[in-house]
Amino acid sequence: MSITLADARLVTPGGVHPGWLTIEDGRITYVGQGQAPTGNGHGLGGRLVVPGFIDIHNHGGAGASFPQGDPEGAARAAAFHAGHGTTTTVASLVSGSLEDLGAATSALADLCEDGLLAGIHFEGPYISAARCGAHDPGVLRTPDRGEFAALVKAGRGHVRMLTIAPELPGALDVVRDAVAAGVTAALGHSDATYEQTQAGIEAGGTVATHLYNAMPSLHHRSPGPIAALLQDERVTVELINDGVHVHPAMLRLAFKAAGAGRTALITDAMAATGIGDGEYVLGSMRVRVSDGAARLVEGGTIAGSTLTMDVAFRRAVQLAGLSLVEAAQVASLTPARVLGIDDRAGSIEAGKDADLVVLSDDLQVEAVMKRGAWIAEPPAP
Rank of each mutant, 00 (worst) to 15 (best):
G204F: 14
A345C: 12
V365H: 10
D291T: 02
G26E: 11
A79I: 08
P143S: 09
L253N: 02
G102D: 04
G83V: 09
A130W: 04
T12A: 08
P137L: 05
R9K: 08
D173M: 09
G170K: 12
D277F: 14
L168W: 14
R160F: 06
I348G: 00
G340N: 07
A192E: 04
G115H: 08
G224W: 05
P125S: 12
V297C: 12
G133D: 07
V50I: 12
E167A: 11
L116M: 13
G39W: 09
K370F: 08
P381G: 14
D361W: 09
M285R: 15
A192P: 00
V152Y: 00
E99D: 15
A272L: 14
A103G: 02
I266Q: 06
Y194A: 00
H59F: 12
P51Y: 13
T267E: 08
G283W: 14
C112T: 07
M1L: 11
A130H: 07
T105S: 14
A118C: 09
A294Y: 10
A354Q: 11
G300A: 10
R176F: 03
G283T: 06
G124Q: 10
L108A: 03
P379T: 10
R371G: 06
P125Q: 13
H245T: 05
A316R: 06
A185F: 11
L21A: 05
V237M: 12
G83Q: 04
G146E: 15
E195N: 12
A130F: 04
A77V: 05
R337A: 12
G46S: 07
V311G: 00
A171Y: 08
G52D: 08
Y280L: 09
D100P: 00
P166W: 15
H59I: 04
G119K: 05
D110W: 01
G283L: 15
K153C: 02
S97C: 07
R9V: 01
T301D: 00
E167V: 12
G274L: 13
D268N: 05
D25N: 15
A228I: 03
L48D: 03
G26R: 07
L363S: 07
I375E: 01
T105Q: 05
D25I: 14
D355T: 06
G292I: 13
L265K: 02
G278C: 13
E167P: 01
G26T: 02
G34V: 07
V11E: 03
L322N: 01
H189N: 09
V287F: 03
M309V: 03
L116W: 08
D191P: 01
S360H: 06
G321H: 11
G351L: 15
I341A: 05
T301I: 02
G340K: 05
T236P: 01
D191M: 04
R131V: 01
E123N: 06
S217I: 01
M1K: 08
G157L: 12
E72Q: 10
A36P: 00
T22A: 12
E24Q: 11
V281G: 00
A6C: 14
L168K: 11
A130R: 14
G32A: 04
E147Q: 11
E377A: 15
G61T: 02
T38A: 15
R176S: 03
T308S: 03
L151W: 05
L101N: 02
G83W: 10
F80C: 02
G52V: 15
D114S: 11
D7N: 13
P18T: 05
G124H: 11
L48P: 00
